[in-house]
Simulated assay, not measured.
Amino acid sequence: MPIDPTQPYDDQNIFAKILRGEIPAKTVYDDDYAVAFHDIAPQAPHHILVIPRGRYVSWDDFSANASDEEIAGFVRAVGAVARAAGVVESGYRLLANVGLDAGQEVPHLHVHIFAGQPLGPMLSR
């Protein structure tokens, strides 16, 4: 069920539990600013989620409230994950759903990296 990003951060969301080590994840990247792991229901041959370590519900929340250091660290992490996955040359798509209309399901900012096949149009027509 999509979430309302204007609601307070929920410490019981699945990504918060992954960050605390309460739920296992197939981690591919981990630093002071971000953690990246394979999606449990991949929508492309490569489907990796990148999440900031901070308590941010959405891109709007993150861009308004994160420090410059957190923002830079997170953006750099997304690029590092794409490079490490070997998808830069063939191409990849970044997706961050925000709010009800976009279908955001987990109330913790996350960026999807999709790659490994032609991904088609960005939106259904």
Rank of each mutant, 00 (worst) to 15 (best):
L94W: 03
D10I: 05
Y92W: 09
L123T: 07
R55S: 14
D39N: 14
I51G: 02
R93M: 07
A96M: 11
L100E: 15
A16C: 03
S58L: 03
M122G: 15
G79E: 09
S67V: 05
A80L: 08
A96C: 10
T27N: 08
D11T: 14
A96R: 03
A85I: 01
H110Y: 12
L19T: 00
R93K: 08
E69Q: 09
A41T: 11
H46T: 15
G86N: 04
V35F: 13
V111F: 08
N65V: 08
V75C: 12
T27G: 02
L119A: 14
F74E: 04
D101R: 13
P2G: 05
F15K: 01
V81E: 00
G103H: 11
V87Y: 00
D101W: 07
A82H: 08
A80R: 15
Y56G: 00
V106L: 08
Y9D: 02
Y9H: 13
L95K: 12
A77P: 02
I3Y: 02
A80Y: 00
V88T: 14
D31L: 06
R125L: 11
Y9E: 03
V75P: 01
L100Q: 15
G54F: 01
R76T: 05
I71G: 04
H110E: 10
G91I: 03
P24Y: 02
A85F: 01
Q12G: 10
P24E: 03
R93N: 05
V87A: 03
Q12A: 12
D11F: 12
V98I: 13
G120E: 14
M122R: 14
E105V: 07
P52N: 04
A84G: 07
P2T: 09
F114R: 03
W59D: 06
A96E: 13
S90M: 13
G91V: 10
D60R: 09
Q7A: 15
D4V: 07
L123G: 05
V35G: 12
D11E: 15
R76L: 14
E69M: 05
A66L: 13
K17H: 07
A16M: 04
D32P: 04
N13C: 12
V78G: 00
L94Y: 10
L49T: 08
R125G: 10
V106D: 09
N65Y: 08
P121I: 06
V35A: 15
R53Y: 03
A82K: 01
V28I: 13
A72S: 12
R83W: 01
V28R: 09
Y9G: 07
A80H: 05
I48L: 11
Y33M: 02
I51L: 04
L119N: 14
Q117G: 14
I71E: 09
H46D: 13
N97F: 04
Y56W: 13
G86I: 00
I18A: 01
V88G: 00
E89R: 08
D4W: 07
A77E: 02
P2E: 06
A80M: 04
P118M: 07
A72E: 12
A41K: 15
M1A: 14
L109I: 07
A102H: 09
P118R: 07
P24H: 03
F114S: 03
P121W: 07
R55E: 15
A82Y: 02
I51W: 00
D60C: 06
L100K: 14
I23D: 02
